[in-house]
Amino acid sequence: MLLRYRGSEGMLAWAFHRVSGVAIWAFILLHVFDIWLVGVNPDLYNELLSVYASPIGRVVESLLGAALLYHALNGMRVIIMDFWPSMTRYHKQIWYVNWVLFAVIGLPILVQIMAPAFGLAAPFTFGGQ
C-alpha cells in the first residue's frame, strides 16, 4: 500500500502520516524505557542521556521533532476532514498550510536543538537552573 505510489498530495500526506506514526511509536517504546530507568538505574539513565545530548543524538531528536510536528499537523487535517467533510474539497490547501506551519514552528526549534552541537550556544535553559 505504502509503495503503490500514486503521487498526489493526499497519498503523500497519508504515507508521511503512516511513516512518522510508526517512527514515533518506536521512540515511545525507548522513551518509556529510559524514563523507567530514572527510578531503577539512574546511572544508566544518565549514560543514555549523554547519547541523547551528543551531536548525533541531536540530529535524531530533530528528526523525531519533525515526525511529531508533521503527524500532529496532518492529524488536525484528518480531523477537520472527518468532522467537516465539505473541507475535503480543500485537502491540498490544508496540506500546504501545514507545511508553512511546519517550517515556521519547526525552524526555531531546530536551531535551538542543533546550536549546542556546533558550539554555537551553551546548553540553554529559559527556565532557570
Binding site: 539512574p42 546511572d43 544518565n46 545530548a53 531528536e61 526549534i109 536543538i113 529559559f126
Partner: peptide, 27 residues
C-alpha cells in the same frame, strides 16, 4: 490525537526548546 496535540507538542517544546536535553539528568 487532540489530547496529544496539546500534551506531546508541549512536552517536546519543554524538553527540547526550553530546557536543553544535556541538563535533564536523573536528579
Amino acid at each position: 490525537g487532540l489530547g496529544l496535540f496539546v500534551t506531546a507538542l508541549a512536552h517536546f517544546i519543554i524538553v527540547h526548546f526550553i530546557y536543553d536535553p544535556s541538563l535533564q539528568t536523573a536528579k
